[in-house]
Every structure is written in structure tokens, then in C-alpha cells.
């Protein structure tokens, strides 16, 4: 099963991340940590949490970049988690079958009991989306909140990944990319959603929406003087007689 599913999965579940409105608040990253530290991969261990070198397992990390361009440049906050690739190299390199892509929905998962902790999958992933838990010696990763999205013990509305439900800016969307009518499919078409590092040929499921073209305004625009006949008072007169 380290081989990718022979047939395309029925559903292709994943995320759309809107770089236009992500303000970089880290809500998705922390809420993800909070959900998942008690979830499928529990715990997301923190080594030395109160020490000189605090580190931990996180499935989602928010990078910040500055982009220089001809519209004055901007700062872009850039959340990144597993992209649940169609051609997931992290799956095919796995020697034990612990790393697999689900045939049902395309989610890439790690079965911890089979993981020998060789870390090869983390080498194979170009996106840095795998997280080794040194405390337990196994690889962990984003599960697309598989223990939420199908969870019958949760309200229907809560059956979305934690990062999506908590995002205050609505910069994250979840859905089935195989369904052309899904919100994620449509928004990707509408906004020109793209793949990260396409040259890696991983065919990531998750898509990123580029920053919208800024409304820069009309260069040189300026208000004309109010009709000056009668001076300021004349102007006011006309203003009031409107």
C-alpha cells in the first residue's frame, strides 16, 4: 500500500488557502495543534516546552514573506501543512507501508504502528510537511482532521478540519476537489488557485489563492477645486442649497 492507489480516489479532499486575506494570526496552526494533540496522532509532543529550546510537533506552520512587485510590494502570510498530493513521494518511499494515501478520499496518512521512524518520507516531501515525533520515534502529519471530518459524534457543521473551522479571516476552505461544483473547486477556478512548487510533480491537492490585485487607485487622481466664484462662502452657499 506504499504504492499510491491504483485508481484515482473517488473523492479528493483538501484545502484551499487564501493568501489574499490570511493575516498571519497563527489561529489555524494553534487550533490544529490543540485538536490533534488529543486526536489521531496524539500527542503532538513538545520537547523542552519551558526550556531554552522549546520545540514541538506542529502539523501547520505559518511563514511570512515579503514580496517586491510593481504595485509596491506586500507582506504575505503563508500557512503550510500537508498538501495531500496525488503523486505523494512521501508514500512511495515508505519501506513499511506506514505511509499511505487513502483510496477513498486521497488523504495521506501515517499508520504509527507500522512506522519505523526512518524519516525517509520527510526527506521525500518537498514541502516540509512531515513532523517527526522524537519522543515516540514515529512520523506524524496532518490528517486533514480525519477524526473530525467523518466524526458522527460531532455536529455536521463541525465536520471540517480544525484549521478551517477556527480561521477568523475565512482564509481556509475545505472540500472535495473531484466535485466541480464544490466550493473549493469553484473558488480555485475563480481566483486562479495554484500548486506550490509544480516542478516537483507531486500534484498537490491543496491549492493556494494568490493575493488579489491591489486596488491601487488612479495615479495622479486629485479633487478639482470647488467652483470658486464667490470664494469659500459662495461655495458653501451652493453646498447648502443642494
Amino acid at each position: 500500500m506504499t504504492s499510491l492507489p491504483a485508481q484515482k480516489s473517488k473523492k479528493r479532499l483538501g484545502l484551499v488557502i487564501d493568501l489574499d486575506i490570511c493575516v498571519g494570526c497563527h489561529a489555524c496552526a494553534v487550533n490544529c495543534k490543540e485538536w490533534n494533540t488529543g486526536g489521531y496522532h496524539a500527542p503532538l509532543t513538545d520537547t523542552n516546552p519551558y526550556g531554552a529550546d522549546p520545540q514541538g510537533v506542529w502539523f501547520n506552520r505559518i511563514h511570512s514573506f515579503e514580496v517586491a512587485n510593481d504595485t509596491g510590494g506586500r507582506t504575505v502570510h503563508f500557512p503550510k501543512s500537508c498538501l495531500h498530493c496525488d503523486n505523494a513521494p512521501c508514500v512511495t518511499v515508505c519501506p513499511t507501508g506506514a505511509s499511505y494515501k487513502r483510496a477513498e478520499d486521497g488523504i495521506v496518512l501515517v499508520e504509527e504502528a507500522k512506522c519505523i521512524g526512518c524519516k525517509l518520507c520527510s526527506w521525500a516531501c518537498p514541502y516540509g510537511a512531515r513532523e517527526f515525533d522524537e519522543d515516540v520515534g514515529v512520523m506524524k502529519k496532518c490528517t486533514l482532521c480525519i477524526d473530525r471530518i467523518y466524526n458522527e459524534k460531532l455536529e455536521e457543521v463541525d465536520r471540517v478540519p480544525a484549521c478551517v473551522s477556527t480561521c477568523p479571516a475565512n482564509a481556509r476552505h475545505y472540500g472535495d476537489f473531484n466535485d466541480p461544483n464544490s466550493k473549493v473547486s469553484q473558488i480555485v477556478v475563480e481566483r486562479g488557485g495554484y500548486d506550490l512548487m509544480p516542478e516537483m510533480d507531486c500534484a498537490p491537492t491543496n491549492k493556494y489563492l494568490p493575493p488579489r490585485k491591489p486596488q491601487s487607485g488612479v495615479k495622479g487622481a486629485s479633487l478639482p477645486d470647488a467652483d470658486n466664484s464667490g470664494g469659500f462662502l459662495g461655495w458653501l452657499d451652493r453646498l447648502l442649497s443642494d
Binding site: D20, I21, C22, V23, G24, C25, S64, E66, G72, R74, T75, V76, H77, P168, A169, N170, A171, P211, R212, P214, Q215, S216, G217
Partner: peptide
């Protein structure tokens, strides 16, 4: 801010620093 940008309103940030909310402004 998300709503505003979604419906095409313009967001101008006046701030010596371009982080946080200012990052997503149409004009900084």
C-alpha cells in the same frame, strides 16, 4: 477584513510597519 476584501472594498493601511492586518491592505 475578509468580508471587505471579498466584496471588493478597498483597504488602506496607515502604519509605519507592514505586518499583521496591514499585510493584506490594498494600499499600505
Amino acid at each position: 477584513l475578509s468580508k471587505l476584501k471579498g466584496h471588493g472594498g478597498k483597504f488602506v493601511s496607515i502604519n509605519p510597519v507592514r505586518t499583521g492586518y496591514s499585510a493584506i491592505a490594498d494600499e499600505w
